[in-house]
Design a protein around this nucleic acid. Structure first.
Length: 603
DNA sequence: CGATTAAGCGCC
DNA sequence: AAACGGCGCTTAATCG
């Protein structure tokens, strides 16, 4: 298969950008933009900006050298010309094509080339569009390379050497980087055109237009969240790091006495553990001994010391020293969000991943890490959580009157599940745990094996428990089957707002139900974030700083906390799709809980 | 040396 | 027939 044609060859002489070009950019039906930077972190600088645009019957592109090393062949471009180009690109009435839009928009705004608007112009992100209408096997993401090879037949051979240069971009003169940068912009343009063409075929126009409008506003919002960042309590982090590192040294010394010289190394641990313990360990799929926390739990003081060491090491490396090293020059942490980071429609977050910080004390050696966050003077950090969002969605989807009633009456949903499973028993802690695990297995698509793994009961008993749950909630089983059938037959499942998740051949149909639950909630939270953000724009009391799948974290003026809670509860409940929640009698209610991150609430 | 894989583990 | 879904980060080990 041949690749789509670029407008140039790598050896071509580059014409300087003219005023006519800038006018053509402004007039083009579609413009693509891509930035080349010195790195990925918040403080990395923009080396250059590439722009691709259409003129009748052809495509053009240019690379603006902002800060490449000086060379004889390529001059840096004046700031006012950059500003002219930016104005032409970000014409409010015409969409801009990008690939991973938030990254580029954030960089442009961070370095003063772009004011962050609320919603216009529309941003057409190739990665988002791809998620809407393509299927993805495991490890087959939405990188430029993957998308170009799947949609446009592949990249020209000369582009494959680009990869190696990525980290050294800042040392190269602009004329070396230009062909790759321009090709990135041109491919982005072609990808978006191609994906939009197919999107129009697959989706109802009205649905697609609504999705594009909403997603575009969301991308602008996400960029503002990223730019806002979050504050860390660096003294607290340092204290904890010192304390835990000292504990780790003690553990290291103890382990050394017991023949384990490097507890971070699997080989060393296996060498040091007593023979009879090693022999009893389960194995990984590759035939190696498992030495994870489940395998080593209760296997004696040496094994316990390894686990404790590992736990503290994770905390120091990832959340204490790891986070501290990522604080930007403005003193704040700016995690990067990827709007198309998951197949399910959730966000993903990295450098650092603030969506996976242990905020609750679950008995690990490091306890809770909530205390590492703080807010600006006069501000508080607040988390607003949808309570049981996925299970409520599940109940709505399955039209479960039983669950609807339980939620309406404010019952503990896990105890409720247990009481329906074992109507003649008093629901003690153990039975509630079983009900809880069954609820989770339902939304996660798990079976008896997963249940056994999670509860510690034998698989034979787990089978019985699962069947008890299925008998208690037959409507959930029916809904699961229905979702699987639809996925199988149509090739996709549809979220409540029309977004589709296309099935890949490798996906078992059992995944369908989970993907609807997860995807529906993802859409809900996005809408809620947009509503909350709009209210913040009016109130002027704070900002969204983070999203963790079913919760929205905000930094707000302390004296406005109660107002903000009321506002967020109202907006988040209102964001729930009523035509879904009203499917049962009584309707499924939605509830929001709050947690004070900073200052921390009293125990 | 950098890139990649495996194992382990944190979150929802 | 069987299947717990979705992520990112760290270290060690391995490979070119």
């Amino acid at each position: 298969m041949s690749y789509y044609a670029l407008s140039f060859e790598p050896g071509d002489v580059e014409e300087p950008l003219t005023a006519e070009d800038i006018a053509a950019i402004a007039a083009s039906d579609m413009v693509a933009i891509d930035t080349e930077t010195t790195g990925l972190d918040y403080d990395s600088r923009i080396l250059g900006i590439s722009v691709a645009w259409r003129v009748p019957g052809a495509m053009h592109s240019a690379y603006l050298n902002l800060s490449h090393p000086l060379s004889l062949f390529s001059a840096r471009i004046d700031d006012d010309i950059v500003a002219d180009v930016m104005r032409a690109v970000f014409e409010p009435d015409r969409p801009v094509a990008l690939l991973n839009a938030v990254f580029d928009i954030e960089k442009l705004s961070r370095w003063g080339h772009l004011e962050l608007p609320i919603e216009y112009p529309y941003l057409y992100d190739a990665q988002i569009l791809a998620r809407w209408l393509m299927s993805f096997e495991k490890f087959q993401g939405v990188s430029m390379e993957k998308l170009v090879s799947r949609r446009l037949g592949g990249m020209p051979p000369w582009m494959s050497s680009m990869k190696k240069m990525r980290s050294k971009l800042g040392t190269l003169p602009a004329e070396k980087v230009s062909p790759y940068a321009r090709a990135d912009a041109e491919f982005t343009l072609m990808l978006v055109e191609d994906l939009m063409r197919e999107g129009r075929l697959l989706y109802d126009d009205e649905v697609l237009d609504t999705m594009l409008e909403r997603e575009s506003r969301f991308l602008w919002l996400l960029t503002r969240i990223q730019r806002h960042g979050i504050l860390l309590d660096l003294e607290e982090i340092h204290e904890r790091s010192v304390r835990m590192t000292a504990d780790m040294q003690e553990l290291r010394a103890f382990l050394k006495q017991n023949g384990i010289h490097n507890p971070d190394s699997r080989d060393s641990v296996l060498k040091g553990l007593p023979m009879h313990i090693v022999a009893g360990l389960p194995q990984t799929d590759n035939g190696n001994y498992k030495i994870d926390s489940a395998a080593l739990a209760g296997k004696g003081p040496v094994a316990e010391a390894v686990l404790r060491y590992r736990s503290l090491g994770k905390a120091v490396g990832t959340w204490l020293d790891g986070f501290r090293s990522k604080v930007a020059s403005d003193g704040r942490l700016h995690p990067r969000f990827r709007a198309a980071g998951t197949v399910s429609g959730r966000l993903s977050c990295n450098e650092p991943n603030l969506q996976a910080v242990p905020l609750a004390d679950r008995g690990a050696a490091f306890g809770s890490l909530m205390g590492i966050f703080k807010a600006a003077p006069g501000f508080s950090l607040l988390a607003a959580d949808y309570e049981q969002a996925e299970l409520r969605t599940c109940a709505a989807y399955a039209k479960s009157t039983a669950m609807a009633n339980a939620f309406k009456n404010g019952e503990d949903i896990h105890s409720f599940a247990a009481s329906l499973m074992w109507p003649d028993s008093e629901i003690n802690y153990e039975l509630r745990q079983l009900g809880k695990r069954c609820n989770y297995c339902t939304t996660y698509g798990g079976g008896y094996r997963a249940l056994a793994e999670n509860t510690g009961i034998p698989e034979s008993e787990a089978k019985i428990v699962i069947n008890t749950y299925r008998r208690a909630f037959p409507e959930l089983v029916a809904a699961q089957n229905r979702a699987g059938d639809v996925w199988e037959q149509r090739g996709y499942i549809t979220m409540w707002n029309g977004r589709r998740h296309y099935k890949s051949p490798n996906d078992g149909s059992y995944k369908a139900f989970n993907q609807v639950m997860q995807g529906d909630v993802a859409e809900l939270v996005k809408d809620a974030m947009l509503s909350v953000d709009a209210r913040f724009a009016e109130m002027g009391v704070g900002n969204i700083v983070l999203q963790i799948h079913d919760s929205i974290e905000v930094e707000v003026q302390t004296d406005a906390v109660e107002d903000v809670k009321a506002m967020m509860r109202k907006e988040m409940v209102a964001a729930a799709p009523l035509h879904i929640m009203n499917r049962t009698e009584p309707p499924i209610t939605m509830d929001v809980g709050f947690e004070n991150w900073y200052p921390e609430e009293d125990e």
